[in-house]
Structures are given as structure tokens and as C-alpha cells.
Simulated scan of single mutants.
Amino acid sequence: MKVTASTLPEVLILEPTVFGDARGFFYESFNERVFAEKTGVAAHFVQDNHSRSQKGVLRGLHYQIENAQGKVVRVTAGEVLDVAVDLRRSSVNFGRWTSIHLSAQNNRQLWIPPGFAHGFYVLSDHAEFLYKTTDYYNPAAERCVLWNDPTLAIDWELDGEPKLSAKDQNGKLLRDADLFP
């Protein structure tokens, strides 16, 4: 596995070694020992999530203020623009974001540590998205920063108006959001 820092040094791009031939391919999508060795992060994952979304769907920017989740995310069908935002007030990168294209073709994954909001925008006809999380989902702790907060000025590479859930339409501006110390 190759590990590269994104423009936010704690958010890591993970590229597995893919073995392929005329029959298809094989790769190890996660190995706790290799992950810890290559990233320096000792994470224990407790939950896997799988979503499917249509083109133009934007999900985010989500986080949990308590039971903060670290995530390894990847796409198994289609392509998304994946975004992470640093919500740690004590961080020199507070309020900064990074984005990366994740797709079934490039096999890239992203490590998003606790203290970051996360979202993605579907670029292909549909996308299937998998998350490994370091803590359990806690609906009472769930928060959402508005995807188009002008302070963040995220370039979502939109192709028209995004399709949003009610929760994502009603996210809070960064200045009004519950944040991490």
C-alpha cells in the first residue's frame, strides 16, 4: 500500500497494490497491521457502512461531535469527489478542506481522522461508497456543516444543482456549528 498525505497532512490517500491479469484483479482493501505500519495510525474499526447514490447526489458535510469517527472510505462502483474539512479549532488547518477523486477504477481510499467533517459528490451515473468507522453511529451526536458554506468555499466540481437530503440542505454554517477543541 502506498500512503500519501493530502493537502491536509492528517488526511491520507491510500493506494493498495492491485494484482491483475486478463481474468480480473485482486487487492487487499484493508489490513490493520499494514495500515498502522504505513500510516502511523493505530485505529480500531467497529462498523462498516455501504451507500449507493445517483449522479449529482451530494452527501455532507457530516461528522459526530461525540463519538467522533475516523473513517477509511472508498468507492466500489462509479466515481465521487470526496471532501474532508478540518473542524478542530486548535488546528493550524482549521476550516481548510481537501478533495480527491475516488473511483472503482483508481482504487484509492482516504483516511479521514476524527475531528473532520466528510462529504462527497457523485460524478458518475451512480456510485457505491464504503466506509470503515472507528466508532459507532450515534444519531444524537450527528452534525452537519452546510455544504456550500461561503467561508469554506469548497469547489465541489458541480454539474448543475446537487441533489441533497433535508439534513444536508439545513446544515449549519461553520461559524454556528458545534466544533472540536
Results as ranks from 00 to 15, higher is better:
119 G>C: 04
116 F>V: 04
92 V>Y: 11
68 A>Y: 02
90 S>L: 01
52 R>C: 09
180 F>I: 12
155 D>F: 05
164 L>V: 00
115 G>K: 07
79 E>Y: 00
10 E>H: 11
81 L>Y: 05
175 R>Q: 12
60 G>W: 08
17 T>A: 14
51 S>D: 05
131 Y>V: 01
138 N>P: 00
54 Q>G: 14
60 G>M: 09
170 N>G: 14
40 G>M: 04
14 L>G: 08
131 Y>I: 02
45 F>P: 09
165 S>G: 07
120 F>S: 10
14 L>K: 11
158 L>K: 01
45 F>T: 03
157 E>F: 07
128 E>S: 15
29 S>T: 14
177 A>R: 14
155 D>E: 13
87 L>Y: 06
64 Q>V: 01
157 E>C: 13
153 A>T: 01
132 K>V: 00
7 T>P: 12
105 Q>W: 02
6 S>I: 06
120 F>C: 11
31 N>R: 15
62 H>D: 08
100 I>F: 08
99 S>M: 01
40 G>K: 11
84 A>P: 12
57 V>E: 10
105 Q>E: 15
128 E>R: 11
154 I>C: 04
2 K>H: 14
18 V>M: 07
95 G>T: 03
152 L>V: 03
18 V>T: 08
40 G>H: 09
24 G>N: 11
167 K>A: 08
18 V>R: 12
76 T>K: 07
85 V>G: 07
110 L>C: 14
73 V>R: 14
131 Y>R: 06
21 D>S: 09
66 E>R: 15
106 N>C: 06
140 A>Y: 06
57 V>G: 10
102 L>G: 03
129 F>W: 04
28 E>S: 10
113 P>T: 05
164 L>F: 01
64 Q>N: 09
67 N>G: 13
181 P>E: 13
124 S>H: 08
112 I>P: 08
18 V>Q: 10
71 K>P: 05
111 W>Q: 05
71 K>V: 01
61 L>N: 06
66 E>A: 14
99 S>V: 01
155 D>A: 10
138 N>T: 13
25 F>I: 00
99 S>W: 02
155 D>V: 03
72 V>C: 12
13 I>M: 13
27 Y>L: 10
16 P>A: 08
144 C>F: 00
142 E>N: 03
9 P>C: 00
161 E>H: 07
54 Q>K: 15
16 P>G: 10
16 P>K: 12
75 V>E: 01
134 T>I: 03
84 A>F: 06
42 A>L: 09
147 W>T: 02
6 S>H: 12
95 G>K: 08
89 R>E: 06
4 T>C: 13
102 L>Q: 04
104 A>P: 03
118 H>S: 06
106 N>F: 03
81 L>E: 04
33 R>V: 09
127 A>R: 02
156 W>H: 05
11 V>K: 13
156 W>G: 05
107 N>E: 04
39 T>N: 11
143 R>T: 00
3 V>N: 13
109 Q>G: 07
158 L>S: 02
64 Q>E: 06
7 T>I: 10
66 E>T: 15
136 Y>K: 11
130 L>G: 09
34 V>F: 04
163 K>D: 05
110 L>E: 04
13 I>Y: 13
